[in-house]
Design a binder for these strands. Structure first.
Lengths: 333, 333
DNA sequence: CTGAAAGCGCTTACAG
DNA sequence: CTGAAAGCGCTTACAG
């Protein structure tokens, strides 16, 4: 089947390519008559514009790239879905890029900004660390979703995230309210100002408010996958078998921990209470169903887009927005 | 920061753009000396080529598009991951497009083939039905992964899938081997020649070989999500409470079914045995851990790519490859 | 081994 | 309201 170009369409409709381009872009300065004629021809030919040509020419593409770190994470996937829905609603052009957990999303963003004339960036599931420096050269607005960039000195960076510290605090308080005292925390690297650090802080805070301590030996570092969490938990509980509550910084971690407890002959929640973070869909179907801190995914998506467009279009400065989450008590606690 | 073009690089290196282009594309016909000079300049400038310009010019982009239907399905995600790894290994250009379950992936493919000069298509998680007709116009090779297209009259179409019929048969045989006889099947629409149809056929076959019947009233149609499966199962088991085995055409369906059984006061596997299909990672961490038919994701990915490139490069005809799966008995059976 | 030139399919001032 | 022409940043015959 022939692939038609706007030139073909122009010929068939008896107008210039300029006019076809106008119709294609819904410009108002075309007579009703011509517009309809051109549209009919385009429909007949199943015309689809060449995205490369368009992208090449359009100096300001208004396209934003959403870079997602971690294809296998259901929460990040759900967030991505929400962002696409926002973009659809606003008729905004968005390209979604999944990148490997091992890859450097910032270098990737740098390349993308060159190769595709991106005018805005959203990072989903990123960490904020020294690698960010490569972004100092990219002079386009960017927002970090799910992690606060408030501490960083990047000028054109904004962020939208759950109040990690407060919600971690609330999660641990929920464990304390169930009478748990020897509480372990399974999470990421506590260094820096990233979510794991904030969540660790919140957990400590809750413990101290209750008159307890978050013992260092009960902080377990793990990747956010069931497999890693499982191994870490088996190892940890053989060392600290008296632990009676676990706060996991991700639902996937909680999944692995709960299974490890089962294999160690412990019952959840009778012997150990477990609470996660994220609120992934499968959580409510697990046995026991997973208590968790539900992240406001739709709201994070919406606000991320909003903040980005404010920066892109009105040159607004980078805001750092913090949203509340919701503790959802189910069976695992 | 300035975005450099190959023209800038050419000037700085004191060569022509043609030469820069050659270096960029690793063509052999450049002197070692020039090559190194150009590469140094490119590195200094953090040069990244404009993908739009390249795509516009290159008549034969050799790019393949992988279209995935269902962002939230862990199995399809895993499959996508495998395909990207194959592509990386082969230095092949792949663009990954997730599309909504409600969207029409074939129309999308049609657009993509025009707008991006795709030279090959892979559909992941697609159904094969009348909508395919729009593809008859697309004169590029395509392969359907995870579903057999053997029955369809499309010329340039190939497919790589698990032997759905045989593996469904094996799954139901596993239930029978556990002494289950009143077996229900939770799956998709049985019409046509799609995976659900083949799997239903396989299930029926196993029952009949054992001297039993797959009763029509025990075939439950559901979408492949935990939520839908949960509702369907609650409804079904209140009607057919004597059912003692369930074959689910997806692990996510099994997840919902198992939870529904729990909420109905039934124990898995004591009262009811459940087996799924796919072999998603979380399956082994569930309680009870999920018995399933593991699809050979890596092999499906590898062969899909292979078949596609054979068609693209050597004009090979469309093959229809069928791969074995593996029944993995865990706790839910 | 190297370069000048044409052209990929669009968009966008500019002129009418 | 419409069109001729330039140009976006590359690649690719073609000529040397």
């Amino acid at each position: 089947m022939k692939i038609y170009t706007i030139r073909d369409i122009a010929e068939k409709a008896g107008v210039s390519v300029t006019t076809v381009s106008r119709v294609l872009n819904h410009r108002p300065d075309v007579s009703k008559d011509t517009q309809q004629r051109v549209e009919r021809v385009m429909a007949e030919c199943h015309f689809v514009g060449n995205a490369n040509a368009r992208g090449l020419k359009q100096a300001d593409s208004e396209t934003v790239a959403v870079i997602i770190r971690g294809r296998q994470n259901p929460f990040l996937n759900a967030l991505a879905e929400e962002m696409l829905q926002c973009a659809d609603r606003d008729q905004a052009a968005v390209i979604l890029e999944y990148i490997d957990e091992k890859a450097d999303e910032f270098r990737h963003a740098l390349m993308l900004s060159h190769s595709r004339r991106i005018s805005g960036l959203i990072f989903v599931g990123s960490r904020i660390d020294e690698r960010c420096r490569v972004l100092s050269g990219v002079n386009i607005p960017m927002v970090f979703a799910t992690v606060s960039a408030a501490g960083t000195p990047m000028e054109r960076a904004a962020s939208v995230s759950m109040d990690d510290r407060a919600m971690a605090c609330a999660a641990v308080e929920a464990l304390l309210a169930r009478g748990r005292k020897r509480i372990a925390v399974f999470g990421g690297n506590r260094q820096g100002t990233d979510s794991p650090a904030l969540r660790a802080l919140g957990a400590r805070e809750a413990m101290e408010k209750g008159g307890w301590q978050l013992e260092d030996s009960r902080y377990v570092e793990t990747r956010f996958t069931p497999a890693d969490a499982y191994e870490a938990a088996r190892d940890f509980f053989s060392r600290c078998p008296d632990t009676d509550g676990v706060f996991c910084m991700s639902d996937l971690v909680a999944l692995g921990v709960i299974r490890a407890l089962k294999d160690l002959g412990k019952q959840v929640p009778r012997d150990v209470s477990v609470i996660g973070i994220d609120g992934i869909e499968i959580g409510r179907y697990l046995i026991p169903s997973l208590s968790t801190v539900v992240q406001p995914a739709a709201e994070i998506a919406r606000q991320s887009m909003q903040v980005l467009y404010d920066m892109m279009q009105h040159g607004a400065p980078g805001k750092h927005i913090t949203l509340p989450g919701k503790v959802e008590i189910r069976e695992s606690i």
